[in-house]
Nucleic acid binder design. Sequence first.
DNA 1: CCGAGAACCGTGGTATACCATATACTTTGG
DNA 2: CCAAAGTATATGGTATACCACGGTTCTCGG
Lengths: 246, 246
Amino acid sequence: MQDVTPFPRLKVEPLDVNVGLRRLACDAIKRAIMEMDIYGHTGEIRLDERQLSQDLGVSRTPIREAMTVLEQEGFVRSVPRRGIYVVRKTKREVIEMITVWAAIESLAARLATARASAAELQSLRALAEFKDDPATHITEYSQTNMTFHRAIIAMGGCELMTGLTDNLFIHMRAIRAVTMSQDNRATRSVVDHLNIVEALEARDADAAERLVREHTLGLARHVEKHGDFLDDPPNKSAQPAARGVA
Amino acid sequence: MQDVTPFPRLKVEPLDVNVGLRRLACDAIKRAIMEMDIYGHTGEIRLDERQLSQDLGVSRTPIREAMTVLEQEGFVRSVPRRGIYVVRKTKREVIEMITVWAAIESLAARLATARASAAELQSLRALAEFKDDPATHITEYSQTNMTFHRAIIAMGGCELMTGLTDNLFIHMRAIRAVTMSQDNRATRSVVDHLNIVEALEARDADAAERLVREHTLGLARHVEKHGDFLDDPPNKSAQPAARGVA
DNA sequence: CCGAGAACCGTGGTATACCATATACTTTGG
DNA sequence: CCAAAGTATATGGTATACCACGGTTCTCGG
């Protein structure tokens, strides 16, 4: 009955009541992990299930399910009778993530040359041109940068690519400071982005794919050169922590 | 002490006792799902947690954890108070998986041109040349085919690529029959593979990447044309099943 | 005879109690 | 005084009991 809506109903989003504590706990813990500076700490960061249950006000069950998800997504690592630790990506792992990112986005760019609308390209160009001075607006630049690459991948029209890279980008966040450690990198990045937009506008599949690939693999090389801090903790030798040790 | 091993000890592999029932249950259920013909059944296939607990001889807890993993990996879908169903990939999803595969393997091929050893290339060529007559040895061909592509990805030297594509390939298994629905496809595939090997041997990065990409995207187009059966169940309209209905 | 409502049953979700093991501390013998 | 063994404890893994919600079915009224 009443298929017709007499007046516009409130657009209330899913608001799934069936969201479940698992998802809630998962999101909360993931956010907490993302917000902490993983590479600033000296030793391994351990998560205590019972402590988290108590803090979040739920039982251990949803916490454990959340941990399972987080482990699948590569945020934590569970050691059988030892504990659950926040993973610290090694330099190699970061480079590998960037490599996969390059692979996906470069093909997405190729696909985009065949299916991107003029409007999409226009908004993409806006993203590429926005950056006034990356060196002074680091946070803003980083945000726009991510949005730019995410937009290219979305323009490829492959949902799976979006999903996979979203996960990769979350891990990238932790090392976004390195992305522009030498300030000319950020400036050169802007040039790269503009070239990519032009290739897309020209519907030049080969150029678009190549430029995206070289741009992102350039970041990989950059991390290869300046990302040694990932493997070497800043202060101590990262002993697996001990409770009451002075 | 005794760093030197007086006599060769038995190479007994990890044999992790800490494997945990979760992993066991996960593997068992995954294998069961893989071995069944998902697209042959008419309706949705529901998994009952309590039934599985009973069958596997463990409690529901490890089963649920396994389900969480399997859901993350895209094998099952949990509907809040309804049940857990084996997912049936849509045509679009399959095409997207193949697209991501193409993206990853093409870049892997590019990387391989710079780091593959002569021995690796030789064994790869052996894989490409092995197939006597794909049309008559379908299972054998499919196996060798997978090994071939897996080898290229491994030669890229990126562990993450291996991990991601391994998961994709598992899902591909279910539709491997379509891969060679028209028998000339298998034969043409052999030619493609040989061309890819030659490009790798010539250390021609552009050609290797292009050939791999075109080869795999060709499969995507093939599925686009002949994969409609994925969306249309063979017989009935896939009602979510009912218990005692005659 | 048919439809609407209520009660029942079955499902996944959650909480909790228990278990096995690895670590850390203590104790005891040399 | 040191080391090795034993013990205490804390942790993740497992089993189980209970809960809330949805679907099905039975029943009652029209």
